[in-house]
């Protein structure tokens, strides 16, 4: 209460922002948002790269990751963990959501996608759409749990506040016109190492090589002794785990989660994956950041109501001139 009073009185005289400040601020917002989109986009691009499935359920998988995180915050009373405890809380959330989403994504593949290997590609797509509906419904039920963090569970469908476990203090000092908070840094601190780690995994480990082999040619890979189903399963596991990380970052950065949030995050991430060149990991990252920046700049300098059009307009233009995305490899003919 005292804090908020202070905030109100402080905001009576906000620091004036020059155009340079505004631009920098927009760029900071754009990059932070873009990093989160990129994390989710990696999940799309990995799955697409290996089985050519647009995994519509991926965004909703992330929703469930956020709901798990909020449940843990409530159940373990994490809001009260002070000092290093705060860091411990964030790490706990990241790891548990990653494990949960990875396992769930693996299970979904096992139950809904694996029986459809070798069947028409679009059957797989519809199965993914079905999974997306199921996950949305689970999130709705989850929001109805009788817990304090879910508002007592009376209103399952209402958006839920995610407590600020990360300080919102301006690192550049209260006097500065530009605001950079721990949250912005947190997004970068978590995502960059994960992306580097993932790149290493795909480039240098046996599993990564197996993944690339399966992506190139599953039949040949199988003939070379690679257990294709296991490799695909691992891809879902890793993609899901990254989605789990992303869901916690999303929740801590935006501080609101709702059972339908997977729709827009999923669509943004999918767009990012395609923009960057679907199937390419660096492409997903670049695509995510580009979309984050375009969104921020369009909100800031055009009009928010046209932002979606601007994003998709840029996407279409990019694809018209670079038909396989910014970093996409030239499409190989699959005859």
């Amino acid at each position: 209460m005292i804090v908020s009073q202070a905030a109100v009185s402080e905001s009576v005289a906000p620091v004036a922002m020059g155009w340079g400040d505004v631009l920098s601020q927009q760029l900071i917002t754009g990059v932070s948002n873009g990093m989160i989109i990129a994390m989710i986009a990696i999940g799309y691009t990995m799955v697409y790269g290996i089985i050519e499935l647009i995994n519509f359920a991926h965004g909703d998988l992330c929703t469930l990751g956020s709901f798990l995180a909020l449940t843990l915050v409530g159940a373990l009373g994490m809001e009260a963990w002070a000092g290093m405890g705060g860091t411990a809380a964030v790490v706990t959330l990241l790891i548990s959501s990653a494990v949960f989403c990875g396992a769930l994504n693996w299970t979904i593949d096992r139950v809904a996608y694996r029986p459809l290997r070798g069947k028409p590609k679009l059957a797989l797509l519809v199965s993914a759409i079905g999974c997306s509906f199921i996950l949305v419904n689970i999130a709705l039920f989850w929001g109805g749990l009788p817990m304090e963090v879910f508002g007592g569970g009376n209103q399952a469908a209402a958006p839920k506040d995610f407590p600020s476990l990360i300080s919102n203090e301006n690192l550049l000092g209260a006097k500065s016109a530009i605001t950079v908070t721990w949250r912005d840094l947190f997004v970068v601190i978590v995502t960059v190492p994960l992306m580097i780690g993932l790149t290493w995994l795909v480039k240098s480990t046996r599993l990564g090589k197996a993944m690339r082999a399966v992506a190139q040619n599953p039949t040949a890979a199988a003939l070379m002794g690679i257990d294709v189903n296991r490799v695909i399963g691992s891809t879902f596991l890793i993609g899901g785990a990254l989605g789990g990380f992303a869901s916690v970052i999303y929740a801590l950065y935006n501080n609101t989660i709702s059972f339908q949030m997977g729709y827009r995050t999923g669509m943004d991430a999918f767009t990012a994956a395609v923009l960057g060149g679907i199937g390419s990991l660096p492409g997903a990252v670049v695509g995510g950041i580009v979309i984050g920046l375009v969104r921020a700049l369009s909100d800031g300098y055009i009009e928010a109501r046209w932002t979606n059009s601007v994003v998709f307009g840029i996407l279409i233009l990019t694809l018209v001139f670079r038909p396989s995305g910014i970093l996409g490899a030239k499409l190989r003919e699959k005859v």
């Binding site: 079905g130 999974c131 509906f133 949305v136 419904n137 689970i138």
Partner: peptide, 9 residues
Amino acid sequence: YLVFGLVLV
């Protein structure tokens, strides 16, 4: 949602 999704799957 759940029923609709299950039907699809």
